[in-house]
Structures are given as structure tokens and as C-alpha cells.
Design a protein around this nucleic acid. Structure first.
Length: 494
RNA sequence: GACCCAGUAGCUCAGCUGGUAGAGCAGUGCCCUUUUAAGGCAUUGGCCGAAGGUUCAAAUCCUUCCUGGGUCACCA
């Protein structure tokens, strides 16, 4: 890449010259290996045991304060920053003049003695300094005093496009992704311990289903066939239940060809698990246990929420869909009276299209009047059948209600679950209704998956299933408000 | 998809009632052996997101486009 920017070229040229000088001094600027033995964090947090000790650390130079024949360096390793003291007397003229060829951004290895400077900062006095990697492109400079940042690297476009810089310069970003990793491994851990089998199902699918969304399409050359990127793994996981695996889970990337905003990304991660011989009540209990488990692994049992805290370990609330709706609107809507529902929408200034059906109106009332107020963990249970094509009819005999829950925490949806529909005749009817919607132009309705229905016809045990949006869960647990901030490389136009 | 905001040096930003670009940091040179937003002196660096237009004159006004952000729409 040829840079036309003069200023940048100038800086890079100086660095290339320094690189040349190092080579001339017979120093390999990119040696094959260096073995650090200590971490900055340990030294800083356990100074009493490190004082006077010889340590070996390695990392990237983040600040350089050169003063003639002595210098201070801020060295950053993967856990923190520590100050390095480099002095002509300690390492010799030749080494010191090579040291002076270093820049912010370079990697070095340092062997030296831990001490405190006269201002009290824990520092390593260098006996031996090894250059590990010379950088030739300058890093943005962020300075800090008493916790206040100067010139911090905050431009969102830059942060997402150059995530490596974001990770170097914004410690809370690296913490978010460390936490993300921890959360996902604790989820695996939980399901493995519960006897669930982790499986992988196709991302490239000849027919998509399991959710209502527009898919991405692609083409396989050899098969000469259209393929879709999965929008959900639900139908494949159910095939596995039918196949005799009683407990399966997958942490799957799903792809939906939709707009993006604070809560939506076209590719996102979803946990789904299916559990034979269980129902949605068992699933609620298991989800509660899962949250307690994650909280324990994170060693963080509460979420900060404004002035209050959300307790993740106590029993979650359980409230029925229509109970919440009647509290919010003052009307009982469980008689599915279209006129009344329309009126309630109007009362609450909710604009609906003229052709909106009852299901869409109920859904909209819930999401505008109820869901934002569900701050404490709350299972909303017993949904209208109209908006739940894959859930089993309620055991209480009401033909309009299904056994389904959604979990809300902090006003946003975290989990969605059903007692899965395993009646093949009912399943066929409901999927046929969906495909009719599709023919009528609903681009998000599901096409009919004959193979799946045939699999259900072979007999599927009663099963509970749950989906949890991992990205949103991580937003919740890390206090991030934008989904892009919990995805390392969010998509951007090129 | 609609509307609003932003894009000026490697980074963070100022300049925008039109007169042809400025600071701090980073960089470079010199000085400096306990500094910490190190300091002192000197200094380099810009087709002001792109293309058109208005004007004697445009970073500044107008139009279109590009990129990002925000709100809404769509969507679990």
C-alpha cells in the first residue's frame, strides 16, 4: 500500500531508517522467540513479594520518556502496563544507543529488577533489553493523568475498522471480549455438565427455517444449487432429538438479511438447546440455573441498573402474557376480540397498519407497553398461538394459547422457549399456514420444510427447547448498549 | 428505506457571519542519569471526504455522491 500522505510517510520513513540502523548494528528486529516469565499485573499487585527480584517481562511500548542517558518506558503486556527504567550505566553505551532507536508501538523483552522509584511507582530496572518487533506504522497516542484520558481513541468508525487499535488503546474493550469468552465457555461448561451433547449443524442449508427472517442466499457451484445461510438451527436440532440424542445444544452463528441497529447485527450468535422429556417449565428452571452458573463463573451476581442492582441468582418472576398485558392496559385481551384490541392500540397511541392481524397487535402492545418495564428477570409465559408457530398448545386446553416463555432482563429479551410442537399433523398445518403467508408476499415467513415434517412424523418425544441470543446476553452482562461493541469485527461498508 | 449530525496533519480537535489553514500530542534535531499528559529550545508535516456549482475569491455558501454515527421504519 503506497501512502500519499506526506506526514505519515515521513514518520514511517524515520522508522524504516531506524530499522536499517538496527540491522546495521547486527540486531535482529524480529527475533524468533522470547520467553517472558512474569506479568505486569502480578508484579504490581504483589509488589512486596517481587521487590528486588529479577523478572522477565515482554510487551509493547506505550509511552517513552527519554532523558539523555536514562529513560522510562510504559510497557503493556496482555494484562496491564508497567513502567520500565532503562539507564545507560546499566545496559552499556551500545545497547542504550540501540534502545534510542525504539518507538512507541515496538515490542521489547525486559529482564531486570523490581523496585520503586522515588515517586513510588513500581518499576523494573532493566539489566537486559531485547527488541522483539519493530513497528513501522505509528499508533494513535492516548495519554492519561489521574484517570483522565487525553486524546482518547473514540471514533466509532476507526474503532470498528481497526479493532486491533481499539484493543490496544481501550482497555475496557479488551475486558468486554475477555468477558465474552468467559461467558461462552461457562455456558458450554454448564451444558456439558448437564449431559448435553454439543453439536454442529449446517450453516449452508438448501431450505431455511426455524425463525421468521429474510435469509442470505448463495450458490454452490458443484451442486449447481441455491443455498441459504441459516437463520436458525432449530429444525436441525429437532431432527437430532428425533434421532435419539435426548439433550443437544449448539452455539451457532445465524445470519439474517435485515437492517442493523443497536440491537441487530446481520450475523449473530445464538445458543439453542433441546431437551427431550422436558417441558417449558423445566426449561425455565434450567435457564435460572444457567444464569446462576454464569454469574458464579464471572464472580458477579448483580448487574448495575441505574441506581439499583439486578440480582441474577434469585428466582426469576413468572407472569403470564395476558396478565401483564391487562395490568398495562387495564383491559382483558385474552378473548382475542379484534375490535377491543384495536381500541386499546389506539388508546395507547400505537399506530398499526390497517391490515395488521390480532397477533401483530398483541405483540406490539407487549413490546411497547410491557417489555421495557421488565427490569428484574421475568419469564413471560403462555403466549398467543398466533405468534408462535413452533410451540405446543397449552395443556390447560385453551386452543389459542401455547406453552411458551420469553425471558426479559433489563427490559430486553434474553431467551425464548417452548414446549416444542411434536404433533406432526398440527406442525404440518401450522407450517403450511406460514408458507401461505410467504406466497402472499410476507418475505419473512418460513417456506415449508418437507424433510423436517417427515422427520417429526417419525415420532418426536415431548421436548423443551430454548434459544438465547448470546450477543444480547453479553451486552447485558458487560454493560454495553451497542451490539457492535460485543462483536469483534462488526460489518462495515468497504 | 426516511430524516438529522459529522468527516480539517499519523491521533485529538479549533477555524465555518467567504479573503486562500492553526493548536496539542506523535515525529525530527539539540540539551537533559528517577520521569510519569516529563521538560526546554528549534523544526517537519495539509489538494480541509470526493466531484460539480455560485463568487474576483470557498475548509467556510449551494447540489450530488462516498463513509460513519444517531433517530425512526423494518426486524425477535
Amino acid at each position: 500500500m503506497v501512502s500519499k500522505k506526506k506526514s505519515l510517510k515521513q514518520v514511517m520513513d524515520f522508522r524504516l531508517e531506524k530499522l536499517e540502523s538496527l540491522l546495521k548494528n547486527r540486531i535482529n528486529p524480529y527475533p524468533p522467540k522470547f520467553q517472558p516469565k512474569h506479568k505486569s499485573m502480578n508484579i504490581l499487585s504483589d509488589y512486596d513479594n517481587y521487590e528486588g527480584l529479577n523478572v522477565i517481562v515482554a510487551g509493547r511500548i506505550m509511552a517513552l520518556r527519554k532523558m539523555g542517558k536514562a529513560s522510562f518506558v510504559q510497557l503493556m503486556d496482555d494484562e496491564g502496563k508497567i513502567q520500565i527504567f532503562v539507564r545507560n550505566n546499566d545496559i552499556g553505551d551500545e545497547n542504550y544507543s540501540n534502545f534510542k532507536l525504539l518507538d512507541i508501538g515496538d515490542f521489547i523483552g525486559v529482564e531486570g529488577e523490581v523496585f520503586k522509584t522515588k515517586t513510588g511507582e513500581i518499576t523494573i530496572k532493566t539489566h537486559k533489553l531485547t527488541i522483539l518487533a519493530k513497528s513501522i506504522r505509528p499508533l494513535p497516542i492516548v495519554k492519561e493523568k489521574d484517570g483522565q484520558l487525553f486524546d482518547s481513541f473514540t471514533d466509532k468508525e476507526q474503532r470498528y475498522r481497526k479493532r486491533h487499535l481499539d484493543l490496544i488503546l481501550n482497555p475496557e474493550v479488551r475486558e468486554t471480549f475477555q468477558k465474552r469468552s468467559k461467558i461462552i465457555s461457562s455456558i458450554r461448561n454448564f451444558f456439558d455438565n448437564q449431559g448435553f451433547l454439543e453439536v454442529e449443524t449446517p450453516i449452508l442449508q438448501p431450505i431455511y427455517g426455524g425463525a421468521n427472517a429474510r435469509p442470505f442466499t448463495t450458490h454452490h457451484n458443484t451442486l449447481n444449487q441455491k443455498l441459504y445461510l441459516r437463520i436458525a438451527d432449530e429444525l436441525y436440532l429437532k431432527r437430532l432429538i428425533i434421532g435419539g440424542f435426548d439433550r443437544v445444544y449448539e452455539i451457532a452463528k445465524n445470519f439474517r438479511n435485515e437492517g442493523m441497529d443497536r440491537n441487530h447485527n446481520p450475523e449473530f450468535t445464538m445458543l439453542e438447546f433441546y431437551w427431550a422429556y422436558s417441558d417449558y417449565e423445566d426449561c425455565m428452571n434450567l435457564v435460572e440455573q444457567l444464569f446462576a452458573h454464569i454469574a458464579k463463573k464471572l464472580d458477579s451476581f448483580y448487574l448495575d441498573w441505574g441506581d439499583s442492582k439486578i440480582d441474577l441468582t434469585k428466582k426469576f418472576h413468572r407472569k403470564s402474557f395476558f396478565e401483564l398485558l391487562s395490568q398495562a392496559t387495564g383491559h382483558n385481551l385474552d378473548d382475542f376480540d379484534e375490535k377491543k384490541i384495536k381500541l386499546v392500540c389506539k388508546e395507547n397511541k400505537i399506530d398499526m397498519k390497517d391490515n395488521a392481524n390480532i397477533g401483530q397487535m398483541l405483540d406490539e402492545l407487549m413490546s411497547s407497553l410491557v417489555e421495557p418495564n421488565l427490569i428484574e428477570p421475568t419469564f413471560v409465559i403462555d403466549y398467543p398461538k398466533l405468534i408462535s408457530p413452533l410451540a405446543k398448545l397449552h395443556r390447560n386446553g385453551n386452543p389459542n394459547i401455547v406453552e411458551r416463555f420469553e425471558l426479559f432482563i433489563g427490559g430486553s429479551e434474553v431467551a425464548n422457549s417452548f414446549s416444542e410442537l411434536n404433533d406432526p399433523l398440527d406442525q404440518r398445518t401450522r407450517l403450511e399456514e406460514q408458507s401461505k403467508l410467504k406466497e402472499l408476499g410476507d418475505e419473512e415467513a418460513q417456506p415449508i420444510d418437507e424433510d423436517f415434517i417427515q422427520a417429526v412424523e417419525c415420532g418426536m418425544p415431548p421436548t423443551g427447547g430454548v434459544g438465547i441470543g448470546i450477543d444480547r446476553l453479553i451486552m447485558l452482562l458487560t454493560g454495553n448498549r451497542w451490539i457492535k461493541d460485543v462483536i469483534l469485527f462488526p460489518p462495515l461498508r468497504t
